[in-house]
Design a binder for these strands. Sequence first.
DNA 1: CAAATTTACTGAACACTGTTCATTTTTAAA
DNA 2: TTTAAAAATGAACAGTGTTCAGTAAATTTG
Lengths: 203, 203
Amino acid sequence: MGITQRKEREKEGMRQLILQAALGLFRDRGYDAVSIRNIAEAIEYSPATIYLYYKDKSEIFFALQYEAAALKRDHLLPVAAIENPWERLVEFGRRYVDFGFKHPDLYDLLFITRAPMEYVENQECWALGMATHSFFSETVQACVDQRYFKSTDTETIAYTLWCHAHGLVSLFVRERMRMYPEEKRQDLAQKSFSMIIKMAEHL
Amino acid sequence: MGITQRKEREKEGMRQLILQAALGLFRDRGYDAVSIRNIAEAIEYSPATIYLYYKDKSEIFFALQYEAAALKRDHLLPVAAIENPWERLVEFGRRYVDFGFKHPDLYDLLFITRAPMEYVENQECWALGMATHSFFSETVQACVDQRYFKSTDTETIAYTLWCHAHGLVSLFVRERMRMYPEEKRQDLAQKSFSMIIKMAEHL
DNA sequence: CAAATTTACTGAACACTGTTCATTTTTAAA
DNA sequence: TTTAAAAATGAACAGTGTTCAGTAAATTTG
């Protein structure tokens, strides 16, 4: 009786179809500027059909946010294999920024877009983000333990580095670097990342 | 013939009335969640009346953005009086962050909200922002000139410090600090600011 | 002061939005 | 082939930004 399995596959396929169409439209026009009718038109279904797979527009948003969180985790995963905590920290930062520049739409979804807060029950996504954050904190802690910093305030160190990385990416993502010529922006971000690493060495 | 003057005053008063109502609503509910009808209701006028003073919703947004830029300039203005460039730089940063925490809605308007890009003709606002940014850059340059840093890469230094400050404020403004207990957030930001200053001293 | 003119304002409409639901079409089971 | 279940939809509701013909108020003119 493989029919139910095929149905299940088709249902999942439809959910993915909706999600990918939504992601493309959200990226191009922003969450609010995209209507359910737009998404429906893109996948050549009636608007009402979408409500058979997602109970409302914000649920589509949350599904995308979860996918983004999973993709980000996968992007950062290889870092865990690095033994030396300092190298692990540097590579974590590099990959964090890299993820932001490669997937600005997903980064935006995760760290900038004002989420329809009502459903903080996006718990799976939240758990994913917390796990990543914990891994980051533990790496900083390992650096502290092994005397890579003079300071022992793990929390503040971790937060400070995160602030810089997030500022770096989000100024780019939300186009607040217009005072720099376009071809220079990535280069400047690169240099700034190197600089904060150098600064952190004397921390 | 003071009548035209009084009319002018009344017109300006009406514009301010609309702006302040809009700002309050935008702050509470966000730009997209606020309708022209909401604003009209708040000031007890018909929706159509608003279009006599602002040609569309985005023009209200831009007017607010300009006011925010002017307020931010005023908030940073006292810094210019500080002679010593390093002290000036530190105080600039402190006040920048302070502005963000005191006026998260305005900060959001200036540095996070995806502006309806069509009117980059918000030139007065852009000019204001650029002037502030230039002042910041020049302060960093003055520090470089007086050998406050080992590095001489003024542009990267300025950008790096800006990244941290912006990250600091925007993580707070867009509520990405939920992993820290609420009463700790401001304190952590304070500590992080001190830390980046310390780091900059060894730059 | 009354009439004419300019200014300020509004109600109704248009095309759009998210969402619901009765109805129809398609698919699977008997 | 009929019957039951699943999937898809058209039409509707209350909301949106925006426009415009028309009304009400204020000012200028005779």
